[in-house]
Simulated assay, not measured.
Amino acid sequence: MRVLVTAGGTSERIDDVRGITNFSTGRLGSLIADAYAEKENSDVTYIHGKTAILPKNQNIKKIEIESVDDLLNSLETCLKQTNFDIVVHSMAVSDYYLAGTASQDQVVASLAKASQANLVATDIQLQEALETSFKNASESAGKMSSDLGTVYMQLKQTPKVIGRIKALQPATTLVGFKLLVDVPESELISVATRLMAKNSCDYVLANDKTRISGDQHVGLLLTKDGTYTYFETKRDIAQGIVKETTQGRES
């Protein structure tokens, strides 16, 4: 049985020494990977962020990534080289990457130039002026000066990684994850159900950040028929996902 687990968080670079990341520790993902590795004749691959907690089982193949691009490249390489029975995509993937930075002076100068060229600059012209200032700033390498009083950052949406999994391996059993913050359980289930349908997931683990503290971790494992199983700890979630996805499966 071949299993691929993604865990931890991605990080998008601001410059050579700074980055934008999230608070994911990869703890749950590491427990899931270890739980699969306990199964007889299992072969587990673990794609993880640089600061993610690693599984304890030494037989698990580990692949470290940093950015969303790194994740996509590693994920696609794995899926093209190996047929996985199960993919558990628990990684917290950055929604945005840094397209460019600009100082306040650069932004003001670009907008002033656009306004001088046109007495009434259109939204499109102003946007083009901003794009120019960000593009010029993003071309500089090294470390951004810490003397700048105000820095503007241009963030653009990253590709949706989960959508690539079934496109590359339609037959794999896919477990997706959805994290929201302080929402009614009905909304959490509704959003997770839409994620499942959009990305052809077989299961989705729906959880709320306000109900996660240490190893206490309330999660709902949704299935395609609309039913779900309720868990209260990370270890229970890991064992539950493994049990649900391996029932009736040959080792």
Rank of each mutant, 00 (worst) to 15 (best):
G19V: 06
A121Y: 09
S24E: 04
A167P: 00
I53L: 14
I241C: 02
L222T: 07
R13T: 13
G248L: 00
V44N: 07
T6C: 07
T6L: 08
G219R: 02
G240I: 04
M1Y: 10
K143F: 13
A114M: 13
T51W: 01
G176P: 02
G100E: 03
G26Y: 02
L28K: 00
S115T: 14
P159R: 06
D182E: 13
F177T: 13
S251A: 14
F23L: 05
R164M: 08
L220H: 13
L130P: 07
Y46L: 05
C78D: 08
D43M: 10
Q239L: 13
E187T: 14
H217K: 11
K178L: 11
V3W: 03
T193G: 10
G8I: 04
A129I: 05
Q216K: 15
I32R: 00
M91H: 08
L119T: 12
V151E: 04
G163V: 07
I47L: 14
V87K: 04
T21N: 00
L72Y: 04
T233C: 05
S110M: 12
L72N: 12
A114C: 06
G9K: 01
T193A: 11
C201F: 10
Y152T: 00
L180R: 01
C78T: 08
R235K: 15
L126M: 13
Y46K: 11
A35T: 12
V242A: 10
L71E: 07
V191S: 08
E12Y: 01
T101R: 12
A206K: 06
E232Y: 07
K143D: 10
F23C: 02
S90M: 03
V218T: 14
F134E: 01
D236F: 06
K61E: 10
V183R: 00
H48L: 03
G29S: 04
A117E: 15
S30E: 01
G248T: 06
L54D: 03
Y97M: 05
S30C: 09
V3N: 05
I14G: 08
V191K: 10
V181M: 12
F134T: 06
Q154E: 09
E64W: 01
V68Y: 01
I65F: 06
A37C: 13
V68D: 01
